[in-house]
């Protein structure tokens, strides 16, 4: 979503983005002229008249589970967004029985919150697991 019109979205898709990925953009490109939706989400830059790089993860019940906001010159890490969705899906499925520690990604160990884990995370989880390598 940006303040650009749907016409500009079409031309950007047709002239540039579709050439990057070899097909049309696979999700709706939304138009927020005036920035009203951006204001609602608290990421509209009044001075510049544009949206900042806000990214919101919304669960199947419409609840915000996470967000990240960056200033324009730094791009997002899409892999990190996907990792967070995978983690949120896992904990949602587990209904509170499992939690994903720092650095978790699919295949890595989860933690089982409960009285026995209090003060014992050091036995279950190593700092090195917070990092990918």
């Amino acid at each position: 979503m940006s303040v650009d019109s749907v016409f500009v979205h079409k031309v950007w898709n047709d002239q540039e983005l579709s050439k990057m990925i070899g097909k049309n953009i696979p999700f709706p490109m939304l138009s927020d002229g005036g920035g009203n939706i951006g204001k609602l989400y608290g990421i509209y830059d009044e001075e510049g008249g544009v949206e900042t790089r806000g990214r919101f993860l919304i669960d199947p019940d419409g609840i915000v589970q996470g967000f990240e906001v960056l200033t324009p010159p730094v791009g997002r890490n899409v892999s990190e967004t996907l990792r967070q969705i995978q983690a949120f899906q896992l904990v949602r499925e587990a209904k509170g029985a499992e939690a994903t520690p720092s650095g978790w990604r699919p295949g890595k160990k989860t933690l089982k919150p409960g009285p026995d884990l209090v003060g014992n995370v050091w036995k279950e989880w190593k700092v090195s697991e917070a990092f990918d390598e």
């Binding site: 950007w12 919304i58 967004t81 969705i85």
Partner: peptide, 10 residues
């Protein structure tokens, strides 16, 4: 699941 992304401009 929805990823709602805002960005400065096309």
């Amino acid at each position: 699941w929805v990823v709602l992304c805002f960005y400065p401009g096309d």
